Computed example of a mutant assay.
Amino acid sequence: MNFEWGVFWEYLFRPSSVYLHGLWLTLSISVISQGFGTLLGLFIALARISKHHVLQVPARIFVWGFRGTPLLVQIVFIYTGLAAANIFRFEDINLGFAVLPGNMQAGILALTLNEAAYMAEIIRAGINSVAIGQTEASKSLGMTYGLYMRRIILPQAARVVVPPLGNEFNSMLKNTTLLSVIGVPELLLATQMVTSVTFRVFELYMVVACYYLTLTTLWGFVQQRLETRFGDPATAASRKLGQKGYRRLFGFGQIGEPR
């Protein structure tokens, strides 16, 4: 195998505009999809714990369907399947300052819906972790459902939700690669476009692997800071940046040792 180190270092430290555009799309799609997915997941979680079957049953079906089918299938179905069945076709949208292509709209929608199903279960678990006595006390004080959920339950549930939320965003960064199958020029498809010109496949895929590893590593440090700031106070001390942070990030440490 003839590995060209010059090509590897060149694209790693001096990426082309195609790479930079793919990197920007990867980050922006991840943030948008995670944000909308978390918001939608909150409403689905509230519907899941509702006593009204008209809300609970559709929420259960939604979670069951999107958690039980592959994300790749969902992406292709939303973009290609709906258009083939003449149900809905994603057209480009002119936002004034930019054009949002139809395939990118479909990709963001698919990632959002898939993420909402997982976040719904995470948020539901967080809400259920709050002692039932606090809900009863809130009702005895005359608080409405929306008021005690907003002021009492959700702030405490957030301490449980923050760590898995960080893990979900880590996965989101990598799941954007699946959008390449519908032509979204994120980081992976940008790499494929460059390899079709340079024919340096191994070197450039090593480069894109380094990019993703850098993104997830940087997010790992951000996640540690978020968990220290908003996580469970009982374990926050063991998550402080600089106190075994690198050991936790790379999975070092003994069983039972706080990370």
Score class of each variant (00 low, 15 high):
Asn2Gln: 14
Val7Thr: 15
Val7Met: 09
Trp9Leu: 15
Tyr11Ile: 03
Tyr11Met: 01
Phe13Leu: 15
Tyr19Phe: 15
Leu20Lys: 07
Leu20Ala: 12
Leu25Arg: 03
Thr26His: 06
Val31Lys: 14
Ile32His: 05
Phe36His: 03
Leu39Cys: 06
Leu39Trp: 10
Gly41Ala: 10
Ile44Phe: 08
Arg48Trp: 06
Arg48Leu: 14
His52Tyr: 08
His52Leu: 12
His53Ser: 07
Val54Thr: 08
Leu55Val: 04
Pro58Ile: 04
Ala59Glu: 10
Arg60Gln: 15
Phe62Thr: 07
Phe62Tyr: 09
Val63Thr: 12
Val63Leu: 05
Trp64Ser: 11
Trp64Asp: 09
Leu72Asn: 07
Phe77His: 14
Phe77Glu: 13
Ile93Met: 09
Leu95Ala: 13
Ala98Met: 15
Ala98Asn: 10
Val99Asn: 02
Leu100Pro: 13
Pro101Met: 09
Ala106Val: 10
Gly107Glu: 05
Leu109Gln: 07
Leu111Gln: 14
Leu111Asn: 13
Glu115Cys: 02
Glu115Thr: 10
Ala120Asp: 06
Ile122Ser: 00
Gly126Ile: 11
Ser129Met: 03
Ser129Asp: 05
Leu141Thr: 05
Tyr145Gln: 14
Ile153Gln: 13
Ala157Gly: 04
Arg159Ile: 07
Val162Asp: 01
Pro164Phe: 04
Pro164Met: 01
Phe169His: 04
Met172His: 07
Thr176Leu: 02
Ser180Asp: 08
Gly183Thr: 06
Leu187Thr: 05
Leu188Thr: 04
Leu189Lys: 01
Gln192Tyr: 11
Ser196His: 12
Phe199His: 01
Val201Gly: 10
Glu203Arg: 02
Val208Met: 00
Ala209Leu: 07
Tyr212Cys: 04
Tyr212Thr: 08
Tyr212Trp: 05
Thr217Cys: 10
Thr217Pro: 03
Arg225Lys: 11
Leu226Thr: 10
Glu227Gln: 14
Asp232Tyr: 11
Asp232Ile: 09
Gln243Cys: 04
Lys244Ser: 09
Lys244Met: 07
Arg248Gly: 02
Phe252Trp: 02
Gln254Phe: 02
Gly256Thr: 03
Glu257Asn: 04
Pro258Val: 02
